[in-house]
Amino acid sequence: MACAVLASCSSTSGSAINPVNWITPYKVDVIQGNFVSSEQVAQLRPGMTRDQVKAVLGTPLLASLFHTDRWDYVFTLKRQGVAPQSFKYAVFFKGDQLERFEGDTMPSEREFISRLDSKRKMGKVPVLEATEEQLKAAEKSSAAKPAPSEAATSLPAGPQTTVYPPLESPKQ
């Protein structure tokens, strides 16, 4: 019976109607590489040293032994329900000096963060501040409680020692 129902659901053309499509496995977000923002790219200037470029952009994702004059910065982000994002940027050196740089049009940090919004709606946030009435009620309830006895709050007169069993067996 269940197979017949599922088979009939799969034959419908609308995927939203098919209950099998309602259940999807959780997919982990995959973040790889270094994100390079448009603000960082704006700081690059020809003639900068490798250390200066590394200070601005971070460690390159790809630095080939065969192409020592090129550093590649690649950033990919794959999230469930969102189209994969990929950004590539390359910097080229002549000796130890930055010669040129090129790549995708990089978003600003603010634009990139706005793309990360998962559109999940959180529940109602509770009020984190007590009202005056709640504070007064708390004062009244604490004043109505009897004070703890002096003997219960005082510390013992002498130091207490605790005896623990030996860690090794006595047969050794």
Rank of each mutant, 00 (worst) to 15 (best):
G103H: 05
S37R: 05
L6D: 11
G123S: 00
L135M: 08
V125Q: 15
T59Q: 06
P146D: 05
I17S: 14
P148H: 02
K140C: 06
G81D: 06
F66I: 10
T59V: 08
L61N: 07
F66A: 10
L135N: 04
T59G: 04
A63W: 04
S13K: 11
E132N: 08
Y73V: 02
S37M: 01
Q80I: 04
S149C: 11
P126Y: 01
R110F: 11
F93R: 04
F35D: 11
P146E: 02
L6H: 07
G58H: 01
E133G: 02
M106W: 05
W22Y: 01
S10A: 12
W22V: 00
A7C: 01
A90E: 09
P107F: 01
E132V: 03
V28W: 11
V74G: 15
W22K: 04
M1L: 10
G47N: 05
A16E: 07
L155D: 14
A143K: 06
Y26N: 12
K27F: 09
V53D: 00
L6I: 03
L6M: 08
Q160Y: 14
D96G: 04
L155K: 11
E132M: 01
D69P: 08
E150F: 12
A42G: 00
A90L: 13
L77R: 14
Q80T: 08
G81A: 14
G123F: 03
A7I: 10
V125W: 01
Y89R: 01
R70F: 10
L116I: 09
A143P: 03
A147I: 06
P165A: 07
